[in-house]
Amino acid sequence: MDKDFINENKTIEEIKNTFHSAEAKLQRKNRIIVKLRSDLIPPFLSYAKNYLSFDHLAHFSCVDWIEDNQFELVYILYSYEKNIIAIVKTRIDREKAEFVTVKHLWRQAETFEREFHEMYGINFTGNNRLTEFILEDWDDIPPMRRDFDTMQYSKENFYTRPGREDAQDVREVITKKSGEKIPDFAKEFSVRKLK
């Protein structure tokens, strides 16, 4: 065991002893990552807060892993006593996006859950305030889902001010001069497609 990370490793040990299925590892100094089954999250968070002194919910995040058809919920807990941040992660189903609230543990979780309800369409049972938060009269799919296309939305809902139609594509201008024909399979490798 690395003697530089005594606190971190001790916490990891404690976590593993209590939650056998938890994947806990050291990320770097002051950071540990804990991966858990989603049904173990409520007991784990309660345990982390009450027994491991992770009393500060520093951050609560959600990542859309659309290719796995999952949302990743990331609770970032901080222990003022241990000076360690625990990044607690779990994955939930993206189609039937439902989870339980943790607002009874940290009141600010309510705000995060409201945001994820609005931005990702996740329903947090037990949170009775999943009302409109940032958006107003939103009628499309939850916008932070990766399949929501901002460019398309903006094209459909806003108009472009005229006056810039004469813009040219550099690659096209050069191929036009040289007669080069870019095959279809190569087109997606054109850097111009950054946006």
Partner: peptide
């Protein structure tokens, strides 16, 4: 706080910003 995730691509997978006001200003 910033929680940043990269999936190895040209663009960030997720940049999640947690300003102090997120808590101070709401709950």
């Amino acid at each position: 706080g910033y929680y940043v995730v990269s999936d190895g691509s040209l663009k960030p997978r997720r940049v999640h910003v947690r300003g102090p006001a997120y808590v101070h200003g709401v709950s």
